[in-house]
Nucleic acid binder design. Structure first.
Lengths: 167, 167
DNA sequence: GATGGGACGTTATAATGTTACAAAAAAGTC
DNA sequence: GACTTTTTTGTAACATTATAACGTCCCATC
């Protein structure tokens, strides 16, 4: 069992790593967070979260639906979207607007905005933080009198492994 | 007729301004750009561009479709999407992933990435540039060995006018 | 005026997301 | 424990956004 407040997880989506540990940690974190906030991590919600964490590739709502029904469930779209809404609302996952898909949040306890590097080849995504960038953006908006509420930052490109493959 | 290579348009979406001038300039710019690149700004393409420029609010594909058919056309979705694809491809419009909608580009001649402030109340959007922010992002990505190809930056919040209204 | 490539029309369909209402399960109250 | 209340889930239908496939037309060029 890991410490509760790590400074910030190391970015590993694009690296070779023991992914089982990622999943276990994510589910464990979710359970702790729900316990702390008196939220109900129901069977479906946990199942959806687990499926999302099966890889570092964002997954679409209907792909999740198909997986759940393959596993013996018989869910309809609203079931999935409700689970996703719950997970989004409590910061356990992020939605990537540029690819209409969902990905696990690596640090649900932080109130931060997720920003992502998304490889167009292997489709893996890596959450990144950017303290100075965020403050710069804030200033830029303020200069226009604009009050920032939320920010979407999604970078598309090639991860290191896929660059090597390309060459 | 305006100069071809302005340094960068002033951000005015959230200000009171003569919007007819915006439209005229946009269409004029588009015509020039197409002439220069030997592209065909066909009737439908121009009509779609014009409709997009009717305001500074991003507009959805099916709203465009409805408008065109109101104006006597009888288009089907593919017609609209093809026009949108053309306009996107040549930098005349941007697609805002966070709201599934399209908005005119204020400086199609620049090769830059569009980034946007989007007011959640009046729905107007303002394209912004951020030279230092872009370079910071580039560095951040490089630190992870990630090769950036394109970036989506969409900030949601309240514009100045809507903040005043709120209070 | 042939002809070849790009643009458009048309029909159907895929993919993504939501509404509305009923049933079931869990939590709170006495 | 029996009751009420709230939350969650099931279910069917529907709404929105986007694409595929194929045929026709236009028109720029030779």
């Amino acid at each position: 069992m890991l410490q509760k407040s790590l400074p910030m997880p190391t970015p590993i989506s694009f690296s070779v790593h023991d992914h089982r540990a990622c999943m276990i940690q994510a589910i464990d974190q979710a359970k702790q967070l729900c316990a702390k906030r008196k939220l109900r991590l129901t069977a479906i919600r946990q199942q959806v979260l687990q499926l999302i964490w099966q890889s570092h590739k964002p997954i679409g709502a209907y792909d999740l639906l198909a997986l759940i029904n393959q596993q013996g469930g018989k869910a309809a779209p609203p079931t999935i979207y409700r689970a996703l809404d719950f997970l989004l609302e409590h910061g356990l996952i992020h939605r990537l607007a540029s690819v209409n898909a969902f990905i696990g949040c690596i640090c649900p306890e932080h109130g931060h905005q997720g920003s992502f590097l998304i490889c167009r080849q292997c489709h893996r995504a890596q959450e990144v933080t950017h303290p100075t960038l965020t403050s710069k953006l804030q200033k830029l908006a303020q200069a226009q009198g604009f009050a920032v509420e939320s920010t979407i930052l999604e970078v598309s490109g090639l991860c290191q492994a896929c660059q090597r493959e390309q060459a």
